[in-house]
């Protein structure tokens, strides 16, 4: 018995050690964001800033039009996320639940699209946006990503173990298919919806190339563009910057969102556990 307890103690210890390792870079970023660019170069590195400096954070926020960028990023990323999550759930459910012509080939096609590397799609996507007359619009940023093969795949996979008798029971009660999906299936899909939502939101949140190709006017700029102007890769540019401050500003809205999302994740998990 003692042996078992020791083993589980060791396991618990390892879990916490792993958690600490995972968390350390986050702490390191938070602390370093308040260091001056010069202090970052100090050797040996120190954990705490010498003097808590917010100059660079303030500079980024006030001088670089970050308010508007943040707004655009939040709007585009949220819209894409909502569209992706709901359309993926809907499509995956119908493909699981019903039989129709071309079901299997269509499904394989959707899954196969996830294997296409996105950078090559930039040029053809630009041509399509051009034909549609969508240059410099929100729909140019949103539409190509409104649905995602991976999302359909994720949902389809999740639905493999779905409690089918619930649906049958509702059908016998004469509930319409749309309502079954809306009121019975969708609530039970909360957990994969949240997971997909997080991945989708993140993908959009950090996307740099497409926004600048499809909508490059200052009114349409998004956060990654603002941050990337501080990139050390820029040729012959002497911009002063603290990469941690930039990283903190990029991560901040997500950290806030995380506090909201975490409840939903736990809830979603608990819900699937009930079946």
């Amino acid at each position: 018995m003692d042996h078992v307890t020791n083993q589980s103690r060791l396991a618990t210890g390892l879990i916490w050690m792993g958690a600490a390792i995972m968390f350390f870079p986050v702490v390191w970023m938070l602390l370093s964001a308040f260091k001056s660019p010069q202090e970052l170069l100090d050797y040996p590195p120190r954990l705490l800033p010498d003097r808590w400096s917010t100059e660079f954070l303030v500079y980024i926020w006030t001088e670089r039009n970050f308010g508007r960028m943040m707004l655009n990023s939040v709007f585009v990323s949220s819209t894409v996320t909502l569209l992706t999550v709901f359309s993926s759930a809907y499509i995956a459910y119908v493909f699981r639940e019903f039989q129709f012509r071309f079901r299997i080939p269509l499904l394989y096609l959707v899954i196969a699209t996830t294997m296409i590397p996105l950078p090559v799609l930039v040029l053809p996507h630009f041509q399509i946006v051009l034909w549609l007359g969508w240059l410099n619009t929100y729909q140019a940023l949103i539409m190509p990503y409104a649905l995602w093969g991976f999302g359909v795949f994720l949902m389809y996979q999740f639905l493999a173990g779905f409690p089918h008798d619930l649906i049958e029971a509702a059908r016998l009660d004469g509930v319409s298919e749309r309502q079954i999906f809306q009121h019975i299936v969708l609530p039970l899909m909360k957990s994969p919806c949240v997971a997909l939502g997080i991945i989708t939101f993140l993908h959009q949140w950090e996307s740099l190339l497409w926004p600048l190709v499809a909508a490059n006017s200052p009114e349409m700029q998004m956060l990654p563009a603002g941050l990337a102007t501080f990139s050390g890769d820029a040729v012959e540019s002497a911009d002063l910057f603290n990469p941690y401050s930039a990283a903190l500003i990029a991560a901040f809205p997500l950290l806030i969102a995380f506090l909201i999302f975490q409840r939903m994740i736990v809830k979603g998990i608990a819900m699937t556990g009930m079946k």
């Binding site: 930039v122 740099l208 490059n216 563009a225 990337a228 102007t229 990139s231 890769d233």
Partner: peptide, 19 residues
């Protein structure tokens, strides 16, 4: 005057300008 990041500056110009 609009600041654009170097990383996407050229792809953006090369697609947009001819269009």
């Amino acid at each position: 005057v609009v600041l654009q990041p170097w990383a996407s500056y050229w792809p953006s110009l090369i697609t947009n300008v001819p269009a």
